[in-house]
Design a protein around this nucleic acid. Sequence first.
DNA 1: GCGTCCAGGTCTACC
DNA 2: GGTAGACCTGGACGC
Length: 287
Amino acid sequence: MEKSIFIETPPSFSFRSTVYSHGWSELAPFSLDVENWRLSYVFRDAGGGVPAVMSEAERGIRVDVSRKNFDGEKITLDLRHIFRLDDDLAGLYEAIVGHERLNWVAEKQAGRLLRSPTVFEDLVKTICTTNCSWALTKIMVSNIVEKLGAGMFPTPEQMAIVDADFYRTEVRAGYRSPYFVELAEMIAGGRLDPEGWLTTDLPTAELKKEMKNVKGVGDYAAENLLKLVGRYDGLALDSWLRSQFYKNHNNARKCKDTKIERHYKKFGLWRGLVIWCDMTEKWFVDR
DNA sequence: GCGTCCAGGTCTACC
DNA sequence: GGTAGACCTGGACGC
């Protein structure tokens, strides 16, 4: 039995631009059907997995849920969170006025970065992106979802009951394996609360420091997480972003990070989002 | 088939 | 605080 719900979206929202905002739509339990423009995700409520298929609708998002009874209030909150429907991007669009190269951002209503229902899930996924190919990231996340969450992203408690050997042999997480055990145990034991990062009053620099206390989270991972919790004043430079900057702004020649930082300084608190949009334009224009 | 390199980096020891 | 070396894995590439 399938049930549909409708989520109203703000005028500046684009379903496709949000889905294409970064690679998260390719990571389980998300899956993307590009031909029919449907994004799937397996949400979680007290009754277990809630498989949902999301698609564009007039002034909103249509969500088809393939479970008869589910916690509609919880799923709606999750949907608003992952699509960032309550984020105000007016400051971004103001910051890029007059920068011809970035006109497309407002035209395509880009800038909302798709995220997971929990910061914990985004944290684990971000660690899976470090020091490996995107293909391996997908393998690790898929193994975590299938082997620990039975199709859903596992809870910290579910991730804490297995040991590092499990992550090594079953997840293929390599040296990250003990990091996942430690992280899951800290959250399950109440010693770390990543969800609090969404609402903390800590200055960005201090929040970044707190994030880096998690094993496996360095500068890149922390700045990526900062963007996902709504703070855009870090560039989150990784090898891919650097290579794109070299191609687009430096005649394909390598340069120091300080040059990249100088280039985006003028965008102030929005610079992390501006560099991301600037480097991913091709994804939106080609599609 | 095999060896090497590298990818959406981070940690630790050492200076 | 800065830096070198180690760290897992899988795919691409050259031979």
